[in-house]
Design a protein around this nucleic acid. Structure first.
Lengths: 199, 199
DNA sequence: ATGCATTCTTGCACGCGCTGCAGGGTTGCG
DNA sequence: CGCAACCCTGCAGCGCGTGCAAGAATGCAT
């Protein structure tokens, strides 16, 4: 019944080992003092292998691989749903992404813990998500119409990322307890309030 | 009458030489095939000196150094002006930044030309602007009140950047003629429209 | 001009991230 | 059991970026 072969399971285990070792060492010595070599020594594997798993040292912190959007939520968004208003629907899309971290919630939280002191990591996440940019652009385009200007697509994409980032910060400010996505509505309403009413 | 000594003028000239050489080589061979060594050979200066001017190879493309906000515009923004509504005032602040590129308009346009094919550069600009983040945060905080949540500050900051980026894209899509900031109102109105009405 | 302090440039050695290649070992499957 | 596909590994090497210490250029005062 195991659809996954031994090969795939070993690969996944190794990947998680990399991520965990990176988190452990980063928490202890600070990320900038942790070399790829050290991580590999911890895992018991060659340096060359590390780069068969990750493009970048930073990717090991974030556990980045195929952080794809939930297809169902994406489809709904593209079709103009669920509510029909763009802002709450962006909220829904973001929440779905936050609910499906690829390597489990604890790892994601530890990753964010490390990333707090290292803004470049957030940036790396941005670039990685720019791999999603094409998908995202297609989504936005399908929703808003083919004539939509590239700059508008970019704007909406940036907005989505900023939403996710701000939500993380708020979750962290609240002590890091509970679900991350619980803090999304607050962020969205603040944004809407600011933009709508001026101030 | 020359307030700038010979020293300062030489420094500035060399900095511009670095930027221009980088642009020239990048346009010819593509940025990833241009080494710092090649840039320095072009300028006729040692590699070590390059890194006395820039922290990063990418910084040479962008000519990043002290891209500070216009103090007057910043002050106006913080005080709640000029219009009193946040969105148009963000527009005004962004326009002022776009109107004061530190190394001249042609260089900025060439930098953007290179950056189009290299998203990491935009990101680098973002981190660099995070040096401004403290200033910007202080600005936003003064405007919105001391109690403003960190995440809101981040959100507004990201929004400002996205505004600038989208404006560049639109300017470029229009053929790259005329003033960049002329395309800002269109971007802003699109954003406002999207967020206000849903769709 | 002359001497002196400050600043800028340069070469050197080095660490680290990251890559291509070539080989040997492991896994999956008929 | 044997073959094909896949994966790990060491090695050699490039490129970015830094600390250091010696030497050149500059600014300034006399």
């Amino acid at each position: 019944m195991e659809a996954e072969g031994l090969r795939a399971r070993k690969k996944r285990a190794r990947l998680e080992a990399f991520v965990d070792a990176t988190h452990r060492l980063a928490a202890e010595h600070g990320l900038e003092r942790v070399t790829v070599e050290a991580i590999c020594a911890e895992v018991g594997v060659s340096v060359r292998t590390f780069f068969n798993y990750f493009e970048t040292k930073d990717d090991a912190v974030l556990g980045l691989e195929h952080w794809r959007l939930d297809p169902v939520a994406a489809e709904t968004f593209a079709a103009g749903g669920p509510s029909g208003d763009l802002l709450p629907d962006m909220q829904a899309l973001t929440a779905s992404a936050l609910d499906h971290p690829p390597l489990g919630k604890e790892r994601m939280e530890r990753a964010f813990e490390v990333a707090k002191g290292h803004p470049e990591l957030m940036l790396r996440a941005y670039t990685h998500l720019q791999g999603l940019h094409d998908d995202l652009a297609a989504l936005v385009r399908r929703r808003l119409g083919d004539t939509t200007d590239e700059s508008v697509v970019t704007l909406v994409g940036a907005l989505l990322l900023a939403l996710a980032h701000a939500t993380f910060l708020r979750w962290d400010a609240a002590g890091g307890g509970g679900d991350v996505h619980e803090h999304l509505p607050g962020v969205v309403s603040d944004l809407a309030g600011i933009l709508a009413t001026g101030r």
